[in-house]
């Protein structure tokens, strides 16, 4: 069976879920050699390639414009406008933003929050899925349905009580509050996904382990964990990125300089209308760099998505 699941925790940042157990890269779909050579000729293919490439360039144009203007001095920008090449390699916009928001601090906050959430949510997902998918505890269909539902909830429906409770217990404006909230929100998706993966886990393997005298914990740790590790590592990567990109709850929960994340810091400063265009672009540029690095490292995983087919 193939499970297609796509979490909806963030408005824009969605995610790829690959239903088939690993799809070949499109280019690898090789027709029979004779057929292939028949269709690879002709100038028409270049026209199509150019059209699609132009579309792709349009998609990255905002980033190119950002790059172009991140290295301009404000006076250069005001005299020559947004389209000219910088007259000098001006890096003060970058350093201004870096110091103004204490960027290393923000980067550390984002890494701590996203990293903790990614690992904790994956652990919780695995434990939940072990009980639901392998243990098949009573009412598991309803429980999984509940987690699926939780996954669709708008954060607005939770935010005020969370904000209020966090204030009551002294967790307001702490990273811990955001870590706990997103551990639960991300693991709602992880539980849903992993439960369906583990439901199809070969019973014979579990039976064999049990006959060898393995305890429940050993089955989880020595059998299920190693086998599902590829899926788990994909979950860790996705949870990290989704949490990194989260905006609404961090905006509400984190109000001081020492706790805010990279995206919240940029949005807050922009909201104060304190930044000129080059500084805005420089700020956006250094806010995006960690994501771009992450994207380049995990490009294949991210674009090919979660492999949920478990019949291998």
């Amino acid at each position: 069976m193939s499970v297609i699941v796509t979490p909806t925790t963030t408005p824009g940042a969605s995610n790829a879920a690959d239903p088939a157990g690993g799809s070949p890269t499109p280019g690898a779909v090789s027709a029979a050699p004779a057929v292939r050579s028949r269709f690879t000729r002709g100038p028409g293919r270049w026209v199509v390639l150019v059209l699609v490439t132009v579309t792709a360039l349009a998609v990255i144009a905002p980033f190119l414009l950002m790059l172009l203007n991140a290295f301009k001095s404000p006076s250069d920008y005001s005299t020559n406008g947004p389209l000219s090449l910088p007259t000098e390699f001006y890096t003060e916009g970058l350093t201004t933003y870096w110091n103004q928001v204490d960027y290393p601090q923000k980067l550390l906050n984002s890494i701590v929050i996203s990293g903790t959430v990614a690992v904790a949510a994956t652990v919780i997902s695995l434990l939940n899925a072990f009980a639901l998918g392998i243990g098949r505890v009573k009412g598991r269909v309803w429980i999984v349905g509940l987690f699926l539902l939780a996954n669709m909830l708008p954060q607005e429906a939770l935010v005020y009580p969370l904000y209020f409770f966090a204030k009551q217990v002294g967790l307001y404006n702490t990273q811990l509050s955001v870590i706990i909230i997103f551990t639960v929100i991300q693991s709602a998706f992880g539980t849903y996904l992993l439960s369906s993966v583990l439901t199809t886990f070969p019973r014979s393997v579990l039976e064999a382990a049990r006959l060898d005298g393995a305890s429940r914990w050993q089955v989880l740790w020595r059998v299920i964990f190693p086998i599902t590790r590829p899926t788990l590592s994909v979950l860790v990567i996705f949870f990290f990125i989704w949490t990194w990109n989260e905006f609404f709850i961090p905006l509400v929960m984190l109000i001081s300089n020492s706790t805010q994340t990279v995206p919240v810091a940029l949005a807050t400063l922009q909201g104060d209308r304190l930044m000129d265009a080059p500084t805005t672009n420089a700020g956006a540029l250094i806010s995006l760099i960690p994501c771009v690095i992450f994207f380049l490292i995990f490009q294949r995983t991210l674009t090919r998505g979660v492999m949920a087919g478990a019949e291998k």
Partner: peptide
């Protein structure tokens, strides 16, 4: 060629949408 094009189209999806919004 196809992989690079696909990755380009996907790029806006993995960036913080707020930062893209500010740009």
């Amino acid at each position: 060629v196809v992989s690079v094009l696909r990755a380009t189209f996907y790029l806006p999806q993995i960036l913080p949408v707020v930062v893209a919004g500010i740009v």
